Simulated scan of single mutants.
Amino acid sequence: MPPHIALLVNPASGRRRAAILAVRLKEALRAAGARVHVYTGRSAADSRRLARLAVSDHPDALVAVGGDGLVHQALQGVVGSGVPLAVVPAGTGNDIARAFGTGRATARGMAQAILAGRTRPSDVVRLTLPDGTRRYYMSVLACGFDARVNERVNNFRFGVGRAGYLIGVIAELRTFRPIDFEIDIDGRTIAEPGMLVAVGNTDSYGGGLKVCAGAESDDGLLDVVFMREASMGRFVRQFPRVFNGSHMGLDEVRHERGASVTIRGDAGVGFADGERMGPPTLKCEVVPKAVEMLDPTS
């Protein structure tokens, strides 16, 4: 039988670049002999529903064509299913694709890599929300200053990426105040005011901001980065170091690792994979090697 590939597409992603890329990829896959079914999500909830529907048909791979938000929805379908996940970057941030070495390529090249079928296992994070709802995420959960910036950026009427993120940072600095966090990491507790906390399975968010620099997606642990309270002047000067990960050496930054992390505090709302999750209390638990990621270098 010919290989069966499911394409999950967010047509609006990347200023509609995803729609164009999905058509080219579909044609390349079919030209290579694959049977292709395209699922087009019109919203986050619709994409999540379609991901589960696609996986129920037991394809040889589910391919997410879009940004980190679409990958997040695809993840809800593939965890525990045995269906490999491929990521074709067509969004603005593409942090998950970057973490797995997936760059821009021709449709033919992407089709060849998908059909080669080589995979590597990745951990994911099971997130429990205050109402008991469980979601999975692949990259970083953010609470505090960065999450509030994300909330602002999501309401912008123009494209995001690093430029949009910086505009959001400037806007949030006008009103932000340190948050009284309580963070439990495998029984170890951090209880003090801080600027932000990030729980990462991979290292970056926001289009390449390495907030959890050094995090690895297959080590069975979560990286927790806590930025202690600082004057706004120092915070403004030091926050740009997140762009290259050099903030990890600051006295204000505490880096811990663990398998289970619970965040409490009046932090507003948390974001995971760039998607709005809800306010603390938020519990993160690593699920080792829960997803097979298709190797883009095949």
Rank of each mutant, 00 (worst) to 15 (best):
Gly265Tyr: 01
Asp186Thr: 04
Arg264Gln: 07
Ala113Ile: 02
Ile167Arg: 14
Thr297Gln: 11
Val65Thr: 13
Gly214His: 01
Gly82Ala: 10
Ala19Met: 12
Gly168Ser: 05
Gly103Asn: 05
Ile170Thr: 12
Thr128Val: 13
His247Val: 06
Arg15Lys: 15
Val140Met: 06
Ala6Ile: 09
Ala18Ser: 15
Ile263His: 01
Val169Leu: 04
Ala97Asn: 06
Thr175Gly: 13
Thr175Asn: 14
Ser43Trp: 08
Ala99Trp: 00
Ala107Glu: 08
Val65Tyr: 10
Pro2His: 05
Met232Pro: 08
Leu294Ser: 01
Leu282His: 00
Ala230Val: 12
Glu151Cys: 07
Glu285Arg: 10
Thr202His: 05
Tyr165Asp: 03
Leu62Gly: 08
Gly208Asn: 12
Val269Leu: 03
Arg254Val: 10
Arg108Tyr: 03
Ala142Phe: 00
Ala272Ile: 11
Arg162Ala: 07
Glu172Asn: 11
Pro193Met: 03
Ala230Met: 13
Arg228Val: 05
Val38Ile: 12
Lys289Asp: 13
Leu29Asn: 04
Gly33Lys: 09
Leu70Ile: 15
Cys143Leu: 14
Gly67Phe: 04
Ile185Ala: 06
Val55Leu: 05
Arg228Ile: 05
Phe156Glu: 11
Asn244Pro: 08
Leu62Tyr: 05
Asp95Asn: 10
Arg135Lys: 15
Ala147Ser: 13
Arg52Asp: 02
Arg174Met: 14
Ser231Gln: 05
Pro89Gln: 07
Gln76Glu: 15
Lys26Cys: 14
Val287Trp: 02
Phe176Asp: 08
Phe239Val: 10
Val83Tyr: 00
Ser81Thr: 08
Val38Lys: 02
Leu222Ser: 03
Ser231Phe: 02
